[in-house]
Simulated scan of single mutants.
Amino acid sequence: MSNASQPRTFLQRWSWVIVGLVVAALVVVFLAPAASSDPDGLDRVSEDKAFVDKAKDPAYEWLPDYTIPGVDNEWASVVLAGLIGVGIVFAVTIGLGAAARAAKKRRVGG
Protein backbone atom coordinates (compact mmCIF):
# COMPACT_ATOMS: atom_id res chain seq x y z
CA MET A 1 0.00 0.00 0.00
CA SER A 2 1.38 3.40 -0.98
CA ASN A 3 1.54 6.52 1.19
CA ALA A 4 1.36 8.79 -1.86
CA SER A 5 -1.74 10.58 -0.57
CA GLN A 6 -0.19 11.42 2.81
CA PRO A 7 1.88 14.58 3.08
CA ARG A 8 5.57 14.03 3.71
CA THR A 9 7.03 15.07 7.04
CA PHE A 10 9.80 17.61 7.44
CA LEU A 11 12.42 14.87 7.84
CA GLN A 12 11.16 13.00 4.78
CA ARG A 13 11.36 16.14 2.64
CA TRP A 14 14.68 17.43 3.93
CA SER A 15 16.56 14.25 4.92
CA TRP A 16 18.87 14.49 1.87
CA VAL A 17 19.65 18.10 2.75
CA ILE A 18 20.39 17.28 6.39
CA VAL A 19 22.64 14.37 5.41
CA GLY A 20 24.43 16.56 2.86
CA LEU A 21 25.03 19.31 5.41
CA VAL A 22 26.37 16.83 7.95
CA VAL A 23 28.74 15.31 5.37
CA ALA A 24 29.87 18.78 4.23
CA ALA A 25 30.44 19.84 7.85
CA LEU A 26 32.51 16.72 8.53
CA VAL A 27 34.59 17.33 5.41
CA VAL A 28 35.23 20.91 6.55
CA VAL A 29 36.13 19.89 10.10
CA PHE A 30 38.63 17.27 8.95
CA LEU A 31 40.03 18.75 5.73
CA ALA A 32 39.97 22.55 6.16
CA PRO A 33 42.88 22.55 8.62
CA ALA A 34 44.93 20.57 6.07
CA ALA A 35 44.59 23.27 3.40
CA SER A 36 47.84 24.57 2.01
CA SER A 37 49.17 27.86 3.32
CA ASP A 38 51.05 28.39 0.04
CA PRO A 39 49.74 31.14 -2.25
CA ASP A 40 46.94 30.17 -4.62
CA GLY A 41 47.48 30.23 -8.39
CA LEU A 42 46.68 33.90 -8.92
CA ASP A 43 48.85 35.01 -6.01
CA ARG A 44 51.71 32.83 -7.21
CA VAL A 45 51.59 34.22 -10.76
CA SER A 46 51.51 37.79 -9.45
CA GLU A 47 54.58 37.03 -7.35
CA ASP A 48 56.40 35.23 -10.18
CA LYS A 49 55.66 38.00 -12.72
CA ALA A 50 56.55 40.73 -10.18
CA PHE A 51 53.29 42.67 -10.26
CA VAL A 52 52.10 41.72 -6.79
CA ASP A 53 52.92 45.24 -5.53
CA LYS A 54 50.36 46.75 -7.94
CA ALA A 55 47.47 44.91 -6.29
CA LYS A 56 45.02 46.88 -4.19
CA ASP A 57 43.59 45.61 -0.95
CA PRO A 58 39.87 44.86 -1.08
CA ALA A 59 37.57 47.44 0.49
CA TYR A 60 36.03 44.73 2.68
CA GLU A 61 36.79 41.08 3.44
CA TRP A 62 34.21 38.72 4.90
CA LEU A 63 36.63 35.95 5.76
CA PRO A 64 40.17 37.30 5.38
CA ASP A 65 42.56 34.47 4.50
CA TYR A 66 39.75 31.99 5.25
CA THR A 67 39.75 32.81 8.96
CA ILE A 68 37.45 34.49 11.45
CA PRO A 69 38.90 37.72 12.86
CA GLY A 70 39.00 37.64 16.65
CA VAL A 71 39.15 33.84 16.96
CA ASP A 72 42.57 33.14 18.46
CA ASN A 73 42.65 29.37 17.85
CA GLU A 74 43.82 28.95 14.24
CA TRP A 75 42.19 25.52 13.80
CA ALA A 76 38.84 26.76 15.12
CA SER A 77 39.06 29.91 13.02
CA VAL A 78 39.66 27.99 9.78
CA VAL A 79 36.94 25.43 10.56
CA LEU A 80 34.40 28.14 11.43
CA ALA A 81 35.22 30.02 8.22
CA GLY A 82 34.74 26.79 6.26
CA LEU A 83 31.41 26.10 7.96
CA ILE A 84 30.24 29.65 7.21
CA GLY A 85 31.25 29.16 3.58
CA VAL A 86 29.31 25.89 3.39
CA GLY A 87 26.30 27.62 4.97
CA ILE A 88 26.42 30.45 2.43
CA VAL A 89 26.65 28.04 -0.50
CA PHE A 90 23.79 25.99 0.99
CA ALA A 91 21.55 29.04 1.44
CA VAL A 92 22.24 30.32 -2.08
CA THR A 93 21.59 26.87 -3.57
CA ILE A 94 18.31 26.41 -1.69
CA GLY A 95 17.26 29.95 -2.65
CA LEU A 96 18.02 29.38 -6.34
CA GLY A 97 16.17 26.06 -6.23
CA ALA A 98 13.13 27.69 -4.64
CA ALA A 99 13.18 30.46 -7.25
CA ALA A 100 13.42 27.90 -10.06
CA ARG A 101 10.51 25.89 -8.64
CA ALA A 102 8.40 29.03 -8.31
CA ALA A 103 9.20 30.07 -11.88
CA LYS A 104 8.30 26.59 -13.14
CA LYS A 105 4.98 26.70 -11.28
CA ARG A 106 4.19 30.07 -12.84
CA ARG A 107 5.00 28.76 -16.34
CA VAL A 108 2.98 25.59 -15.88
CA GLY A 109 0.12 27.43 -14.25
CA GLY A 110 0.31 26.44 -10.65
Rank of each mutant, 00 (worst) to 15 (best):
I88W: 07
R8C: 00
D57V: 06
I84T: 03
L11E: 05
V17E: 06
K105R: 09
I88H: 06
S37F: 14
V23S: 04
A32V: 15
R106K: 15
A4Y: 12
E61A: 08
F30S: 12
I68A: 06
G87P: 09
A100T: 04
V19G: 10
V29K: 01
V19H: 08
D72P: 06
A24I: 02
G20S: 05
R107C: 09
F90H: 10
V79M: 00
A32M: 15
W14A: 00
A55N: 13
V17A: 07
V27G: 08
K56R: 14
L80M: 09
S36D: 12
V23Q: 03
S5W: 12
Q6K: 15
A81W: 00
D40S: 05
I18Y: 03
A35Q: 14
L42V: 04
V71Y: 04
V28D: 01
A25T: 00
A50T: 07
S77L: 00
V45I: 08
N73I: 07
F90M: 11
K54G: 05
Q12N: 05
I84W: 00
W75T: 15
I68K: 04
I94E: 09
P58N: 03
V78S: 00
A98S: 10
V19I: 15
R101K: 14
N73S: 08
A24K: 01
D57E: 12
L96T: 10
P33N: 13
K56C: 07
S5I: 13
P7C: 10
S37T: 15
N3W: 14
A55S: 12
K104C: 05
K54V: 08
A25D: 01
A32P: 07
P64Q: 05
A50I: 07
A50E: 09
Y60A: 12
V29A: 07
M1K: 11
A103R: 05
P58M: 01
G85E: 06
G82E: 01
W16S: 11
I94R: 10
A50H: 11
L42Y: 05
G110H: 04
Q6R: 15
A24P: 01
S46G: 02
S46C: 02
E74W: 11
R106T: 01
G70F: 09
